[in-house]
Deep mutational scan, measured.
Amino acid sequence: MEVRTIKVFTTVDNINLHTQVVDMSMTYGQQFGPTYLDGADVTKIKPHNSHEGKTFYVLPNDDTLRVEAFEYYHTTDPSFLGRYMSALNHTKKWKYPQVNGLTSIKWADNNCYLATALLTLQQIELKFNPPALQDAYYRARAGEAANFCALILAYCNKTVGELGDVRETMSYLFQHANLDSCKRVLNVVCKTCGQQQTTLKGVEAVMYMGTLSYEQFKKGVQIPCTCGKQATKYLVQQESPFVMMSAPPAQYELKHGTFTCASEYTGNYQCGHYKHITSKETLYCIDGALLTKSSEYKGPITDVFYKENSYTTTIK
């Protein structure tokens, strides 16, 4: 009895394709271990004539594949690729409408935090270190965002349907971005203890939790000093293409032309909904596939993004 075979390709990165001759009487799992086709788990399936010449994702289970996976995804987590594939199996079914010149995501599976993050990423200057993220990001900007969303979920250790947080998501993504040249110098002034300067680099240099107003941050924000008295913390120097200011959701007025974009969060910790506000020729609110415009805006804002380049204080 002759062994019926077909020729397929296996890959971990969709760049390096490895030619395989597979036995049609055995499952993919018996031949390769966990195997995925377009995100779908085909591990328990036997090869079919229609699979001839198709590319299958496999887990990096030998040295060659491990090197290829690390170079593309910059992670050695053995569960990463499987999590990416199972997320992709959902995100490829989502709709990605162009809204006001940006790629958004039609609401499904509690994905409003991903839509808000995706919209924000198209408006701030950011370059990702893992080629996987950078490639998928370019495709997302062009309207094909399924891979990018699935990668975000995998890097953030999230599953489809789980509630997510924009600030946490951005923080994970910033860790995989090139923020080497970003720098922030802060000064804390206390009447009792004097003053202390701190220099922050990388992710810490672009994120701040405690106030939404970048102007206020430049002037000074009140913080408790270690001595128990009130101290003032203010920005001395900022070198970065953008800054992200966050605070627990509270009524906040966004003035046209003073910011790049913002995240609105309605609801409580267990259950809520994100919308995205962007400042173009007027203010726009993007909620999944829905767009509304207004000249002014007041609502429960939790993150505001500002364009920056270089700032030095005039406070002496």
Rank of each mutant, 00 (worst) to 15 (best):
E2D: 12
E2C: 15
V3W: 14
V3Q: 15
R4L: 13
T5M: 11
T5W: 12
I6Y: 09
I6N: 08
K7A: 12
V8C: 13
F9Q: 13
T10K: 12
T11S: 11
T11F: 07
D13R: 07
N14G: 15
I15R: 12
N16P: 08
N16C: 10
N16V: 15
L17D: 10
L17V: 13
Q20K: 14
V21F: 14
V21A: 14
V22A: 13
V22Q: 07
D23E: 13
D23N: 14
M26L: 13
M26Q: 15
T27L: 11
Y28F: 13
Y28G: 09
G29N: 08
Q31L: 14
F32N: 09
F32D: 13
G33C: 07
G33D: 03
P34H: 12
T35Y: 04
D38Q: 11
G39V: 05
A40K: 14
D41P: 11
V42K: 07
V42F: 15
T43I: 09
T43W: 02
K44W: 12
K44T: 13
K44F: 14
K44V: 11
K44L: 13
I45P: 09
I45V: 14
K46G: 11
N49M: 15
N49G: 13
S50H: 12
H51A: 07
H51G: 04
H51M: 07
H51I: 02
K54Q: 14
K54P: 03
K54S: 13
K54F: 13
F56V: 10
Y57W: 09
V58G: 05
L59D: 15
L59K: 08
L59E: 14
D62H: 06
D63A: 05
R66E: 15
R66I: 12
V67E: 13
V67A: 14
E68L: 05
E68M: 06
A69D: 10
F70M: 14
E71G: 02
Y73I: 06
H74R: 09
T75P: 04
T75G: 06
D77P: 03
D77E: 12
P78S: 13
P78K: 14
P78E: 12
P78W: 14
F80M: 03
L81K: 00
L81I: 13
L81A: 00
G82I: 13
Y84I: 02
S86Y: 07
S86L: 14
A87D: 02
A87P: 02
A87V: 05
L88R: 09
N89R: 12
N89K: 11
N89I: 14
H90R: 13
K93Q: 09
W94A: 09
W94D: 07
K95D: 13
K95L: 14
Y96N: 01
Y96P: 03
P97C: 11
P97R: 10
P97W: 14
V99P: 15
V99L: 15
L102P: 13
L102Y: 10
T103F: 09
T103R: 06
T103N: 03
K106N: 08
W107M: 00
W107S: 11
W107N: 03
A108E: 06
A108M: 05
D109K: 04
N110A: 12
N110K: 05
Y113L: 05
A115E: 04
T116F: 06
A117L: 00
A117G: 00
L119P: 00
L119Q: 04
L119E: 03
L119W: 00
T120K: 08
L121Q: 10
L121H: 04
Q122W: 01
Q123N: 03
Q123E: 07
Q123F: 03
Q123W: 07
I124Q: 07
E125I: 06
L126V: 14
L126R: 03
K127N: 14
K127S: 12
N129L: 03
P130Y: 06
P131L: 04
L133H: 03
Q134R: 13
D135G: 08
A136T: 08
Y138S: 15
R139N: 11
R139M: 11
A140S: 06
A140D: 07
A140C: 10
A142K: 14
A142E: 14
A142C: 14
G143Q: 11
E144A: 11
E144L: 05
E144M: 06
A145R: 02
A146C: 10
F148H: 08
F148C: 07
C149Y: 06
C149E: 08
A150D: 01
L151S: 05
I152G: 02
I152H: 04
L153M: 10
L153Y: 12
C156I: 10
C156K: 10
T159R: 14
V160M: 04
V160T: 02
V160Q: 05
E162S: 02
G164M: 05
D165T: 03
D165Y: 05
V166I: 00
R167S: 04
E168Y: 06
E168H: 12
T169K: 01
M170R: 02
M170H: 05
M170W: 02
M170S: 03
S171D: 09
S171T: 14
Y172L: 15
L173S: 06
L173I: 14
F174Q: 00
Q175R: 11
Q175E: 11
H176G: 03
H176P: 07
N178L: 05
N178T: 03
N178Y: 07
N178D: 13
K183V: 12
K183C: 08
R184Q: 03
V185R: 03
V185P: 05
L186Q: 13
L186A: 10
L186E: 14
L186P: 04
L186W: 04
N187M: 15
V188M: 14
C190D: 09
K191P: 15
T192N: 13
Q195E: 15
Q195V: 15
Q197G: 05
T198C: 08
T198L: 14
T199C: 12
T199P: 01
L200A: 10
G202K: 06
G202P: 02
V203W: 11
A205G: 02
A205W: 02
A205E: 07
A205V: 03
A205I: 00
V206L: 01
Y208T: 03
Y208W: 00
G210P: 02
L212S: 07
S213A: 01
S213M: 05
S213F: 01
S213G: 01
Y214L: 11
Y214D: 04
Y214Q: 01
E215G: 07
E215R: 05
Q216P: 06
Q216W: 04
K218W: 05
K219M: 10
K219I: 07
G220M: 01
G220C: 03
V221G: 00
Q222R: 10
Q222W: 02
C225R: 01
C225Y: 03
C225D: 01
G228I: 00
K229Q: 11
K229G: 15
K229R: 14
Q230C: 03
Q230A: 09
Q230G: 04
T232L: 11
T232V: 13
K233G: 10
L235V: 08
V236P: 00
Q237H: 15
Q237M: 13
S240H: 03
S240L: 02
S240K: 02
P241N: 12
F242E: 03
F242K: 01
V243C: 01
V243E: 06
V243F: 04
M244A: 00
M244F: 00
M245A: 01
M245T: 00
M245W: 05
S246V: 10
P248H: 06
P249G: 01
P249K: 00
P249V: 05
A250Q: 15
A250I: 10
Q251H: 15
Q251V: 13
Y252R: 07
L254R: 01
K255V: 14
K255Y: 03
H256M: 14
G257Y: 01
T258R: 05
T258A: 09
T260A: 10
T260E: 01
C261T: 01
A262G: 04
S263Q: 05
E264P: 04
E264W: 08
E264Y: 06
E264L: 09
Y265Q: 06
Y265M: 01
T266K: 13
T266S: 13
G267K: 01
Y269D: 07
Y269V: 10
Y269T: 13
Q270W: 08
Q270V: 11
C271P: 04
G272V: 01
H273Y: 01
H273Q: 05
Y274F: 06
Y274H: 08
H276A: 04
I277H: 02
T278H: 07
E281Y: 05
T282C: 08
T282K: 12
L283K: 03
L283D: 02
Y284W: 14
C285M: 08
G288A: 06
G288W: 02
A289L: 02
L290A: 12
L291P: 00
L291E: 12
L291Y: 15
T292H: 12
T292W: 10
K293W: 07
S295T: 10
E296Y: 14
Y297T: 06
Y297H: 05
K298Q: 13
G299K: 10
G299F: 06
P300E: 13
T302A: 04
T302L: 04
D303S: 00
F305L: 04
K307M: 11
E308A: 02
N309E: 15
Y311M: 08
Y311T: 05
T313Q: 15
I315Q: 15
